[in-house]
């Protein structure tokens, strides 16, 4: 397995064609993703966060710019993505869903079954190996999706608003779980959200996208020790600051 270092996002621009009208979504995005950091991309809905994520994930092509890693183009096998709506394959059991990425790497049947069970254990879903996705709750589905992403055993994980569809309580426990999983097996994480509280709870660093077309408006380092408490003074202070600056910059640019 290759070990990748820092990632450079260089001059990314992207526009779409809407009935002959060109709509610029991303303009000249530049930032770095450090190795093993938990980076949160924060921005309002429709600001192009997901588009940026898809470009990083190599699912769509930028108009200009590139994603570099150790001086080379970032490769697909170095990363894995967790999607908004779980996207588990409904015709496969939880275990088979988690096995999938290993199957395509050519891992033997026994080995990948063993590994998949381990990853399901990591997300605390022992005993649900043979359940189908329709038989489990939304939070559990998303945990299976996280286990599946981990099972690819790549260095970079991308999360596209993974908890957006969950209720607040499930969401809190999922955020806690995610940090626990990430701390027990460190990876570079890029996480998209439009929820400030979630951003402050999870991130080592927050990058704020805003404006039209979107560009990076602010950057925050969050140095509160983990596990974080949402009603902590320091937590609330940072949250408020981000809220002020993000909202402010939105007014200025848009």
């Amino acid at each position: 397995m290759s070990v990748v270092g820092d990632i450079c996002v260089r001059n990314i621009s992207k526009s779409f064609n809407n009935n002959g009208k060109k709509i610029e979504v991303l303009k000249d995005i530049n930032f770095e993703i450090h190795k093993n950091e938990f980076l949160v991309l924060f921005g309002p809905g429709q600001c192009g966060k997901s588009v940026l994520m898809e470009i990083i994930a190599n699912i769509s092509e930028p108009d200009s710019g590139e994603i570099m890693c150790d001086g080379k183009k970032l490769r697909e096998e170095d990363l894995c993505m967790v999607f908004q709506r779980y996207a588990l394959f409904p015709w496969k059991t939880c275990l088979k869903n988690v096995e999938m990425p290993m199957k395509f790497k050519g891992v033997s049947k026994e080995k990948r079954e063993e590994k998949a069970k381990e990853y399901l254990k990591l997300v605390e879903l022992e005993g649900f190996e043979n359940s189908y996705p329709r038989q489990i709750s939304g939070g559990m589905k998303q945990r299976v999706a996280i286990a599946r992403a981990y099972a690819k055993e790549c260095d970079i994980l991308l999360f596209d608003e993974p908890f957006g569809a969950l209720d607040a309580q499930t969401r809190y426990s999922m955020e806690k779980e995610l940090i626990k999983i990430w701390q027990s097996e460190k990876k570079t994480v890029v996480f998209i959200t439009n929820n400030i509280e979630e951003a402050v709870y999870l991130a080592d660093r927050i990058i704020i996208l805003g404006g039209s077309p979107s560009s990076i408006t602010e950057e925050f380092k969050i140095e509160i020790p983990r596990p974080r408490n949402r009603s902590d003074q320091a937590f609330l202070a940072i949250r408020k600051e981000i809220e002020n600056r993000a909202v402010h910059s939105d007014i200025v640019s848009g």
Partner: peptide
């Protein structure tokens, strides 16, 4: 087939 499944496939390196 929802596009997200195809994206999952791409993301899983298929």
């Amino acid at each position: 087939v929802p596009e997200v499944y195809i994206n999952v496939g791409k993301s899983l390196g298929m």
